[in-house]
């Protein structure tokens, strides 16, 4: 039972991440390889605000959103001068820089030692410690963020992003400013990721930089591309598929000696086949180029 609750909590956290990333990748058509940066900044900011500044969970999360929003602005401004492959490379660069900072700024982050003993969230005097309680808090945040994002997806802003994605020159010719609109999308996406970071940190009560590496950014992008982008159902399908598939492979009953490697290979093969037969993702209509 605990195992299922744990999976549901992780699905909740990853859905927050992928719904946010969807705005940049699915709507804006920009492949970002630094989403884990904002996830990581969120986790560290929330942790440090709670442990070093003694802030309660909710104010810490709000401040975390603000801090990460500013970071996303700083990253997005130069990155969004680029498009296509160059944008991918620039975001990759930022991913490496931030990871290195988290890893080496030992005074602040304790670097590779990580930060243990992160307090559980306390809201209105009630401490969320057990798995079912944590499930409630994660999914409450997920629903709040999803509602906000769904309104944004459906808004004129969402449509303008899709127009820019389909043909930037034509959209600009209709008076849409690529710089402003993409930057808004990037900042909102970073802010939502920071909430996931705060929730993750207080859930596992220990963070170190290895949770926020390039691997994580690639995983998040994979979640989105597998599920399908630019709509409301894709990130959900992608998250459930990518988190449950490796878990499901555990139950294949393979001999222990080969199980781990075989699982990885089946996992990889599934992704290849999926892209082969369904390049737009399981629930996607639009194919990211």
């Amino acid at each position: 039972m605990n195992y299922i609750l744990h999976l549901l909590i992780m699905i909740g956290i990853y859905m927050i991440l992928s719904y946010g990333l969807n705005l940049v990748v699915g709507f804006g058509g920009l492949l970002s390889l630094c989403h884990a940066v904002f996830y990581g900044i969120g986790a560290y900011a929330c942790t440090l605000l709670m442990m070093k500044c003694g802030l309660p969970f909710l104010p810490a999360i709000l401040l975390t959103i603000l801090i990460t929003g500013i970071c996303a602005l700083i990253v997005g401004f130069p990155a969004l001068r680029f498009r296509g492959d160059s944008f991918v490379i620039v975001t990759l660069g930022f991913q490496m820089i931030v990871f290195t900072v988290l890893y080496n700024w030992v005074d602040l982050t304790r670097g590779p030692y990580g930060i243990p003993g992160i307090p559980r969230p306390v809201i209105a005097g009630y401490e969320f410690t057990t798995l079912p309680e944590y499930l409630i808090i994660v999914w409450t945040f997920l629903i709040l963020i999803a509602v906000v994002l769904f309104i944004i997806y459906k808004s004129p802003f969402g449509l303008a992003l899709k127009a820019l994605r389909d043909n930037e020159m034509a959209a600009e010719g209709l008076g849409k400013s690529p710089v402003h609109l993409f930057l808004y999308a990037f900042v909102i996406s970073g802010m939502t990721a920071s909430v996931a970071g705060g929730l993750y940190a207080t859930y596992v009560t220990y963070i170190d930089p290895t949770s926020f590496t390039l691997d994580e950014s690639i995983f998040l992008l994979t979640v989105l591309l597998v599920g399908g982008t630019g709509n409301r159902i894709g990130p959900f399908v992608g998250t459930v598929f990518m988190i449950l598939l490796p878990e499901a492979l555990r139950f294949l009953g393979m001999p222990d000696a080969v199980a781990a490697n075989a699982r990885q290979m089946i996992y990889g093969l599934t992704l290849i086949l999926l892209m082969f037969f369904r390049p737009q993702g399981i629930a996607g209509k639009y194919m990211v180029r």
């Binding site: 449509l159 303008a160 899709k162 127009a163 994605r165 389909d166 043909n167 020159m169 034509a170 959209a171 209709l174 849409k176 630019g230 209509k285 639009y286």
Partner: peptide, 14 residues
């Protein structure tokens, strides 16, 4: 240069 993945309605709405 129409917005290919958008409907005709969305193209004009944009």
């Amino acid at each position: 240069r129409v917005f290919e993945n958008l409907t005709v309605f969305e193209n004009v709405a944009s």
